[in-house]
């Protein structure tokens, strides 16, 4: 057992999140996938903090959480307003910006 287990585990979580972003159409689920990717990164940060023996990684992870919170707030607000006008939370329906 070494720390690279955590890192590989985080990479797998990150990939699952990324694939989720690609295959899910519900905007809220897509957001959750993004959150999963952020969490995977946080795990990596914390693992490296432990590896190097400094707290800086944890602080960065804290900032990531804060930014994620802000992002969720704004993103969900956007989803709400889109839903209000289009009666749909599917991101495929918001495709006006095209050729």
């Amino acid at each position: 057992m070494s720390l690279s287990y955590y890192l590989v585990f985080a990479a797998i979580l990150f990939t699952i999140g990324a694939v989720g972003v690609l295959v899910r159409r519900n905007a809220i689920v897509v957001f959750m996938c993004v959150e999963l990717m952020l969490n995977a990164v946080n795990l990596t940060l914390i693992t490296f903090a432990r590896s190097t023996g400094t707290v800086d990684g944890q602080i960065i992870a804290l900032f990531v959480m804060v930014v994620a919170a802000a992002e969720v707030v704004v993103g969900l607000a956007i989803i709400m307003s889109i839903y209000r006008t289009r009666r749909s939370a599917s991101i495929d329906d918001a495709n006006l910006l095209k050729y």
């Binding site: 070494s2 720390l3 690279s4 990939t15 432990r50 590896s51 190097t52 023996g53 707290v55």
Partner: peptide, 23 residues
């Protein structure tokens, strides 16, 4: 996942664990 996982596994095989007990 294969690429990144393999890369990380290779690069961090002998990652030292200093631990945070010191700080």
């Amino acid at each position: 996942a294969a690429l990144v996982g393999a890369g990380i596994a290779r690069a961090t095989q002998d990652l030292p664990v200093v631990g945070l007990a010191g700080v």
